[in-house]
Nucleic acid binder design. Sequence first.
RNA 1: GGGAAUAUAGCUCAGCUGGUUAGAGUGCACCCCUGAUAAGGGUGAGGUCCUAGGUUCAAGUCCUAGUAUUCCCA
Length: 910
Amino acid sequence: MDYKDTLLLPKTSFPMRGNLPQNEPKKYKQWDDENVYEKMKANREEASESFTFHDGPPYANGPIHIGHVLNKVIKDIIVKYHYFLGKKVYFTAGWDCHGLPIEHQVEKKVGGAKKKEMAKSKFRGLCREHALKFIEIQKQGFKNVGVIADFNQPYLTLEKKFEANIYRELCRIASKGLLVERSKPVHWSWAAKTALAEAEIEYKDKESHSIYVAFKLQDRDESIIIWTTTPWTLPANQGIVLSEKIEYISTTDGFIVARELFDKLKKDGIVKGDIGETILAEKLEKTKAINPLNGRDSLIMLDDFVSIEDGTGAVHNAPGHGEDDYRICLSYDVQVIVPVDDRGCYDEDINKYNLFKDTEKYLGRNVLTCNEDVLEDLGEALISDNKFTHSYPHCWRTKKPIIFRATKQFFIALDKPYAEDGSTLREKIIGNLDNVKFYPQTGKNRLLSMLERRPDWCISRQREWGVPIAFFRVKATKELILDEKVLNYVAMIFDMHGADAWYDMEIKELLYPGCSHKPDQLEKVNDILDVWFDSGSTWSAVLESREYDAGNFPADLYLEGSDQHRGWFQSSLLVSSASREIAPYKNVITHGFTMDAKGRKMSKSEGNVIDPDKISKEFGSEVLRLWVAMSDYQNDQRISNEIVKQIAEQYRKLRNTFRFLLANTNDLEKISSFDDMKTFDKWFLSLSAQTFKEVSLAFDNYDFAKGLNKINNFLVNDLSGLYLDVTKDRLYCDEKNSLNRLSSMSAMSIITKSMIYLLAPILTYTMDEILANASSTIKENNNDIFDCKHFKLKEIESELSTKDIIEARSKFSELVDVMKKDKSIKSTLELDLKIEPDLFKSIDKEDKEDLFLISNLVKESEEKEINTFEVNGSKFTIYKASGSKCPRCWKFNASKEDSLCERCEKVINV
RNA sequence: GGGAAUAUAGCUCAGCUGGUUAGAGUGCACCCCUGAUAAGGGUGAGGUCCUAGGUUCAAGUCCUAGUAUUCCCA
């Protein structure tokens, strides 16, 4: 007779294989259709705690890559983690929509010439379309990896009210006196016709001239030699800077250079004579040299910034083209001349100031193409000309080398007292960081050291796709109008019409009715705001404005890549500290970057780019999410096919263990009370509780990799390897409602519930699927995973020693392995065991037999002793089993061949 | 050129304030089971703890210098 049908074998509708690539999209769509995000909020309407996550806006340009996925999935996991803890959570997705990259792409599409003819608002409309298109693409990409956020009312920096709010933030800062206007040399991209922020500059190798030029002194028959790498700035030369700290000498062939550099200069053939008299820099101060290019005066000035690392110890000064030059000229009251227009071409100023002998030759030409001509025109004054390659700033977008060019710009002043307590913005932001917790902690110092050193924030750009710095100026005086009523009215217009109104409407329409300013005497400022100002004010436009149901200000958490120390973390802190005097966030988490298998960055040219969409389609988004969670994301992570395969294996193990748990608890109707459970099961619950506590602790610190490693360990060793193996006999062979069986099934249900809760933030889809296929003891009244809430397994003491159990089993299986290998036994059920003295007194005979998967625990045996081992003072003796094999439970407990053992006999006859 | 982070088994990660023979999972090899079966179990082989110095009775852990990779800045 086949007894298989009399067994209670595991049964479940939960499939072994997830078919994730096919099934996930359906579920994700369902969640989307049901608006699960809103449901989550409704579920926590009564929650006492809330958690505001403020999403850092990705740039709405191009499809998402693995870095976007990492970023959003970590956010999603953390938000869900707080949700399943029982908090009301907020996660409004956002996009950064303005800025040069989009403007540049649209410009490429329509063509530069066509763009010029186009009305500004028309062009801005095209930029808007471009951004909106990619927002949809990116949105879908995020949904495809199971991210749940407010995607229905996301915040977009291009929205009318959003633009109005950014503008209001600017006005608030202006009203505090922090906005200053200065003409200052800035990094200028002539190719993009805009000032560039530090963040928009890339350093690349460039070949430049290295030239030595002699400037003849007016009062002496000697020449000072200067060194420069930018010949094109020579026409704008206004002086030569020496340092009091450097000793200068004249040479017998009539040149003046630093004494320390003489040997080197002589070796290079720059000077040919010998050292003559010593010259004091002070003596030359305020005397004049002659610019050999145009015969203009060049004033000798002194400053300590001059170094003797290279050059001659005398520095060519063009105040329109260098920051130090500018500063020094200001102190000597020397005029700043900038004969270069926004396209990087020499303009009419070269005529006005007679900067060249033949100005016609240069007018309208890009300065970088003029170097050779300048050198030629220098004639004999050019002492040496070499080329060399050095690291030089380039425009991040156009990849063209940039120039320094003095322009009028708006700055946010960092060192000007403004706060109620009289502190400066720099002091304020540094102080505000005291109240912010950083993960990892090193992030705080990283941000601090930047804040201590950073210059004033240049927030103006001479571009079109952005929020206008919508201020009026008095034409005659260039004075800014910061009249509150004027600003408020403009903001109100932006609320209704968006910032395009600044371009579409006339000045008289933009002024409030009854305003005393005369429209025809005013002009508009045409600059737009740095996009970092946009994103820096999202806390205001999103959290404070009440336009979105996005949570509270300040936010509980900001989370971005570590590059945002320079970017968003800083711009947000600056804007919020300037206008509200507090930090916009309470916690900041940073993540690293995703590298290839070798830890190198991905790039198209290297061909090592991993497409997240491909992984979702081949393995499933859950595998991708598990990869994120198992990575040490606060550092750089690696991804490769091999790594993904490995993660897929971990997923498989996890899934199958859950499947077995579901299958084994399938017919349980009610979880037994603790008092009705056996010591052995309670022991395992205590072990589980200990593990889950450690996991929760790791998760509390957002260390998901550590927590998952613990879960994985538990799953493989304790659950799958021990508990589930040991309890099989009672589950399959015992009578349906035996105490043994109910007790173990109850423990399993509790453990399953705990693990579902722990893993729900990470493997939301899978946990939902598990729940749908679970028995009512696990599922309870929950319709889906989002109905679940924190289930914490309480900690209990157990008199059983986990250490002894593990050690005894390990020693036993070591001996068994030998027996199996020499074919003396096939199964441990062929064995009996004697434990003397009894190491496991607290559990009954059956539990001890099952613990070792043997047939009988004996006090003595007539069979031959096979082997012994010792654990913690107890001696374990292994015997061949004395009974016959029961055809139902396979234990060697039957009294004779082919007959059932006592237990099975009983079960069958019930 | 400057600031910062990381470096432990083929892979993903542990290793607390310095203290036995450096751990786990996975992968790999071999074996068992076929009542978790496109599953499950067991055993085993894998390490110059990036390199070189130093402190110490004792260094994966502390110090110094360097290398590689990454991020940020000039």
